[in-house]
């Protein structure tokens, strides 16, 4: 019985990783669509909305079934607790991808202001954090997430700088308001995605050690 349960737990993790990669893919593709002003690419991201939502429902149900039928304890329980958080975080990351893709649809007909400021760089850093959080979950390791606090600080500073830069451009040129407002929103969404990566990291830490930490 224990063997069957552990096989199912492995399968659950593998499927959750698939969902995490989908969320990450939606965000990455949305940012690429923004950079390239590629409307079609943006539409393809929005089209993934149903898929990721269906995965969320199915995987959560899988978790609940495993709990109900096996009453997991210790690390097994912590794996499922962490998995539930990874599922939620992945959905949110994917949904921010969709929201950014919707912004792309609105502003892709106008040229970028200041080469999107530091948005592409910020996006790279956020996606690296998501990759590391997913890898930590996959490998049952906390090595990849040890510096998340400092990396999250960098993301917060970048959002702040995009906000200030955006305000400056808006004051200089009223026609830039729509685009700059959307850049500020994108920066905010990216920052939230980094927060979700931190949430995954916190839960992987709990999964591995049984201790709760908070990454600010």
């Amino acid at each position: 019985m224990a063997e069957k349960f552990h096989t199912e737990l492995k399968n659950l993790k593998a499927e959750t990783l698939e969902m995490a990669h989908l969320g990450r893919f939606m965000l990455r593709t949305a940012v690429d669509a923004l950079i390239r002003q590629d409307n079609e690419l943006a539409v393809s991201v929005v089209a993934k909305k149903e898929e990721i939502h269906t995965m969320e429902v199915r995987l959560e149900e899988h978790c609940y079934h495993l709990i109900a039928l096996n009453q997991p304890m210790a690390k097994d329980m912590r794996v499922i607790a962490c998995t539930l958080k990874v599922i939620t975080a992945s959905l949110r990351i994917g949904r921010y991808g969709k929201v950014i893709a919707n912004i792309v649809k609105k502003i892709s007909d106008q040229p970028h202001i200041a080469n999107l400021m530091t948005i592409p760089h910020m996006a790279d850093l956020v996606i690296e954090m998501i990759d590391d959080a997913i890898e930590a979950y996959e490998k049952d390791s906390i090595e990849e997430i040890s510096d998340f606090s400092a990396r999250d600080d960098t993301i917060d500073s970048l959002r702040e700088s995009i906000f200030r830069e955006g305000i400056t451009y808006m004051m200089e040129d009223l026609k830039s308001i729509t685009r700059c407002t959307n850049y500020i929103l994108v920066a905010r969404y990216l920052e939230r995605c980094a927060d979700h990566a931190c949430k995954i990291a916190e839960n992987v830490h709990y999964m591995e050690t049984g201790e709760r930490i908070e990454i600010h």
Partner: peptide, 17 residues
């Protein structure tokens, strides 16, 4: 004990290994 046992033996036993 059931959430995060300190000993690996305990962990392995309560998770049915």
């Amino acid at each position: 004990i059931f959430e995060h046992p300190k000993e690996e033996l305990t962990e392995n036993y309560i998770t049915g290994r």
